[in-house]
Simulated assay, not measured.
Amino acid sequence: MEFTHFNESGRAHMVDVGEKQDSKRIATAIGSIKMKKETVDLIKEGLIKKGDVLSVSQIGGIMGAKKTSDLIPMCHNIFLTGSDIKFNVLENEIEIEATVSTIGKTGVEMEALTAVSMAALTIYDMCKAVDKNMVIGNIMVVEKIGGKSGHYKRK
């Protein structure tokens, strides 16, 4: 088997995508953060002392998408054409959905996953004073559009 992220000397390297064609690429990832009902209520009522949790988390997620190549080894620095974070606030959980897009030579799945992760981590950071038992999880790509492999949608 030939490994794509190692050079002929067996050392790690970033894959050259220069010969690939540009195409519109979109990826959507989801995840969640579980917490006490009382914590969700404080978020909804705007009573978390650090401020508007979902607004700050949305910004954190977008910033995470933009910084993905700084965090993931061998991940290409991608010019993002769009990034959006949505929340579904449930009784004891907040579901997070991130959609990231570009026109380029490589996909944005890692950017979408990083956006969800950073949004969840931001919620944790802002709420940890009232709920240390929060659990972040179920982070996954649910759809990818564009590129050589085409359209993928999780069943």
Results as ranks from 00 to 15, higher is better:
2 E>H: 11
2 E>D: 12
4 T>C: 10
4 T>E: 13
5 H>P: 11
5 H>L: 15
5 H>A: 07
6 F>C: 08
7 N>F: 10
9 S>V: 01
10 G>W: 12
10 G>T: 09
11 R>F: 07
11 R>W: 02
12 A>N: 02
12 A>L: 11
12 A>I: 10
13 H>F: 15
13 H>L: 05
17 V>T: 13
20 K>A: 13
20 K>I: 08
21 Q>K: 15
22 D>F: 13
23 S>A: 14
23 S>E: 02
24 K>A: 07
24 K>M: 06
24 K>F: 12
25 R>Q: 05
27 A>P: 01
27 A>H: 06
28 T>I: 08
29 A>Y: 09
30 I>Q: 07
31 G>K: 04
32 S>R: 11
33 I>H: 02
33 I>W: 01
34 K>Q: 15
36 K>Y: 04
37 K>R: 15
37 K>Q: 15
38 E>H: 04
39 T>M: 06
41 D>F: 01
42 L>R: 12
44 K>D: 11
46 G>I: 10
46 G>S: 11
46 G>Y: 14
46 G>H: 14
47 L>N: 14
47 L>W: 03
49 K>C: 00
53 V>N: 11
54 L>M: 04
56 V>W: 11
57 S>Q: 04
57 S>G: 11
58 Q>T: 11
59 I>V: 15
61 G>H: 01
61 G>W: 00
61 G>P: 09
62 I>A: 03
63 M>Y: 14
63 M>D: 00
64 G>Q: 09
66 K>S: 10
68 T>L: 06
69 S>K: 05
69 S>C: 12
71 L>R: 03
74 M>K: 00
75 C>M: 06
76 H>A: 08
78 I>L: 15
78 I>N: 09
78 I>M: 12
78 I>H: 06
79 F>L: 12
80 L>M: 13
83 S>E: 14
83 S>R: 03
84 D>M: 05
84 D>I: 09
84 D>Q: 14
84 D>T: 14
87 F>C: 06
88 N>R: 09
88 N>Q: 11
89 V>D: 04
90 L>H: 05
90 L>G: 08
90 L>N: 13
92 N>Q: 09
93 E>L: 10
93 E>G: 13
96 I>M: 03
97 E>F: 03
97 E>Q: 10
99 T>G: 06
100 V>L: 03
100 V>C: 02
101 S>K: 10
102 T>I: 02
103 I>V: 15
104 G>T: 06
105 K>L: 01
105 K>A: 00
105 K>S: 01
106 T>C: 06
107 G>R: 00
107 G>Y: 00
108 V>E: 02
108 V>A: 03
109 E>S: 11
110 M>S: 10
110 M>D: 03
110 M>W: 00
110 M>H: 01
111 E>D: 10
111 E>M: 09
111 E>T: 07
111 E>L: 09
112 A>I: 00
112 A>S: 10
113 L>I: 01
117 S>V: 05
118 M>H: 08
121 L>H: 12
123 I>G: 15
123 I>S: 15
125 D>M: 05
125 D>G: 07
126 M>G: 01
126 M>L: 15
127 C>E: 09
127 C>A: 10
128 K>S: 07
132 K>M: 08
133 N>E: 13
136 I>P: 00
136 I>D: 02
137 G>F: 09
138 N>V: 01
139 I>L: 10
139 I>H: 07
140 M>I: 04
142 V>C: 08
142 V>D: 00
142 V>P: 05
143 E>G: 05
144 K>W: 12
145 I>Y: 13
150 G>N: 12
154 R>D: 12
154 R>F: 07
